[in-house]
């Protein structure tokens, strides 16, 4: 993976494709093929972004806070659940189906319920983020624990290791790559989850901002906030990659 994303030249095609897309978008608007009240041009969007920057940042701060709290709680919960389920087969059998079912519940449907139960503050947003983020991490961890080489477990047992030591020296390290793949997905879910929850009821956050500009038919600002959400999600995923590299220095070693 490091070979593919490492050099600048390997990123050139992606950058070129993005610029090309923006260029065609601009061309579509500038030529008058699509009226500007339906599709704002990239220039309008950029202008809206700059003009409303402080407002956007204020709402982004709220959303990020909700996403961060939710993600942290999600990680802790996922770790606890996955570890206990891995330790006790009976719990795994009991709760595996429930875990899967919990993921088929549409977030759009439960978000209003959460608002109803918990009010318009941060609590329902954080809760929704927890619900959407903990699953990929828990599944990743469970799969990771099971990916451990049984011979490595035998080796540690032969050295007289107890269950805790086997977990610490073999199982947990084996789960790390899976954990970080799950965390990367969850980081992007976290922002989207927070925005959806805000969308369905609240006083601040990017989701609230979205509903407001939508009602005002300010599509340029609508696009600006969408792009901001994309950028924040990408930055978060990048941050996860940085943490992964720091936590697993051995994974980037070339022989």
């Amino acid at each position: 993976m490091s070979e593919r994303s490492g050099s600048i030249t390997s990123k050139l095609p992606a950058a070129a494709a993005l610029l090309l897309l923006i260029f065609f978008w601009w061309l579509l608007c500038a030529s008058g093929a699509v009226p500007s009240y339906m599709l704002p041009s990239p220039v309008d969007v950029a202008r809206a972004f700059v003009n409303d920057f402080s407002n956007l940042m204020y709402h982004a701060g709220t959303t990020l806070q909700e996403a961060a709290y939710g993600l942290v709680i999600g990680v802790v919960l996922a770790f606890a659940i996955a570890t206990v389920m891995d330790r006790f087969l009976i719990l795994d059998r009991a709760f595996s189906p429930l875990l899967v079912i919990s993921q088929t519940i549409p977030t759009i449907a439960i978000a209003p319920l959460l608002v109803l139960w918990m009010g318009f503050g941060m609590a329902p947003k954080i809760t929704l983020v927890v619900i959407t983020t903990f699953f990929p991490i828990a599944v990743g961890l469970l799969e990771g624990y099971r990916s451990v080489d049984p011979d490595a477990v035998d080796l540690l047992r032969a050295m007289g290791a107890n269950r805790r030591q086997i977990f610490r020296h073999v199982k947990f390290p084996a789960s790390l790559p899976y954990f970080f793949s799950g965390l990367k997905i969850s980081a992007s879910y976290a922002i989207v989850g927070a925005v959806i929850a805000e969308w369905l009821g609240g006083f601040e956050g990017l989701g609230v901002y979205m509903t407001r500009v939508k009602k005002a038919y300010a599509f340029d600002r609508m696009f600006a906030v969408i792009i901001l959400i994309v950028v924040i999600s990408l930055l978060l995923m990048g941050l996860v990659d940085l943490i992964r590299r720091a936590a697993m220095p051995y994974a980037n070693i070339k022989n």
Partner: peptide, 28 residues
């Protein structure tokens, strides 16, 4: 834990430096 055992594969743990792999039984 009484009789030392080298299994068929070397089973060096990829996430530990060589010194920590080798010193693992002492750590345990």
């Amino acid at each position: 834990g009484k009789v030392s055992y080298m299994l068929q594969k070397d089973l060096l743990l990829a996430h530990k430096k060589v010194i920590d792999n080798v010193a693992l039984p002492l750590l345990l």
